[in-house]
């Protein structure tokens, strides 16, 4: 069962690695930000899988922090650039 969890974790890491293409290609600043968000949300899933695989419940607290704080970046982005820039903002 542990092997299954770790294999799932590898699949999720490959997923976030694939999302890096959006940072490279963009085109908008929001697209790039979504990659950071995907690292946060997939990170929660990864940490929960690793907590099960290794039998260390303390890792779930790391997942808790990811879940609580990852949203801050989006709120910061929206509040400092959001309505003024509109949905189609290009950063370069």
């Amino acid at each position: 069962m542990d092997t299954f969890y770790v294999a799932l974790a590898i699949f999720l890491v490959l997923n976030v690695a694939a999302s890096l293409i959006r940072v490279i290609r963009g085109p908008t600043a929001a697209d790039r930000l979504m990659t950071a968000q995907l690292f946060g949300t997939t990170g929660v899933a990864l940490l929960l899988l690793l907590a099960e695989a290794s039998g260390q419940p303390a890792f779930r607290n790391v997942a808790l922090i990811f879940a609580l704080l990852a949203i801050l970046i989006v709120i910061c982005f929206v509040q400092t650039t959001g309505s003024a820039a509109g949905p189609g903002n290009r950063e370069a």
Partner: peptide, 10 residues
């Protein structure tokens, strides 16, 4: 996690 997810990005 506490520094990297929230504070650093902001």
């Amino acid at each position: 996690a506490a520094i990297g997810t929230g504070l650093l990005g902001v």
